[in-house]
Write a protein that binds this DNA or RNA. Structure first.
Lengths: 148, 148
DNA sequence: AGGGTAATGAGAATCTTTTGCATTTGCCTA
DNA sequence: TAGGCAAATGCAAAAGATTCTCATTACCCT
């Protein structure tokens, strides 16, 4: 039921300290219902998906809301290559990304050793970590296999 | 002597398979003479430096040349946070970055353990690595010390 | 030195993201 | 539950970064 979905997202927004407005609910819904293959979406993609289901929400609002979600810790913004940022719903633990430069597929991974080393490196340089981003670019198995 | 500098950069360009034009020589010179504190420059910054020494080179050319340099392996483009790319001359070995979100300082580091783990992760996922980028964001010692 | 080709400059165009402002909506109180 | 205020939204314009177009200029080869 849509109403139950909405009810849940309303609570999430309230908990994040954000007023539960319709645009915010819709955007959060889009992010939560995204499949693995499209967990990483640009503002434009969210905009198009919402237009597709004829909830017209202004692009400016999408940007504003995603930025607020980021500040509230609900989503993470990634500056992968390509000139536009992509957003991902925060769920589960922190992870890094490996993406295919041919087909654009994005996969996630967690590596405790790397996490640990990063902490050490920051300490050695006298930094307090606020964030970090590790992205491996490569060619995925499928793309190596053939079709391009 | 400037002429010796030019002579050297000319050779570098030729070796990279690029015609040795004046704009390319000037841009390469700027990159090579940059201090550690400004090894990572945006196209706009290169443009301003060149204007400062009254070699007026169009911004479009800066972008074109930097992109060619990247393709030729002379420089690396980084998409740090902040909406604009920065370029860095390739010299010495590969390295990653740790940067201060307060003052913008960028430092470099190399960690063999992390490099190794990345290779393993790529292999586990069936990828052939073409590139990777690890950036740690934090607050440097100086900025923690005081002056916001 | 002369010519063909590739490179450059300037500005227009494009793309992504932000902002200003009038209008609307969520939420709290009476 | 209605009323009102502050916050949120939509639209259009602006801003910032990067790319493209095309006429002009500069390399490089012979």
């Amino acid at each position: 039921m849509v109403s139950k979905q909405i009810a849940m997202t309303t609570i999430e927004l309230k908990e994040a300290g954000l007023k539960a407005t319709l645009p915010r609910l819709k955007i959060l819904e889009i992010l939560e219902s995204s499949t693995d293959a499209q967990r990483h979406m640009s503002a434009e993609e969210v905009y198009d998906l919402l237009r597709g289901q004829d909830d017209k929400i202004g692009l400016a609002t999408i940007y504003r809301v995603l930025t607020q979600f980021e500040a509230a810790g609900l989503v993470t913004r990634h500056n992968f290559e390509g000139g536009h940022a992509v957003f991902e719903l925060n769920q589960g633990e922190h992870h890094d990304h490996i993406l295919c430069v041919k087909c654009g597929r994005v996969e996630e991974f967690v590596d405790e050793t790397i996490e640990q080393r990063q902490q050490n490196i920051a300490k050695e340089h006298g930094y307090t970590i606020t964030d970090h981003s590790l992205t491996i670019y490569g060619i995925c198995g499928e793309c190596q296999a053939g079709k391009v």
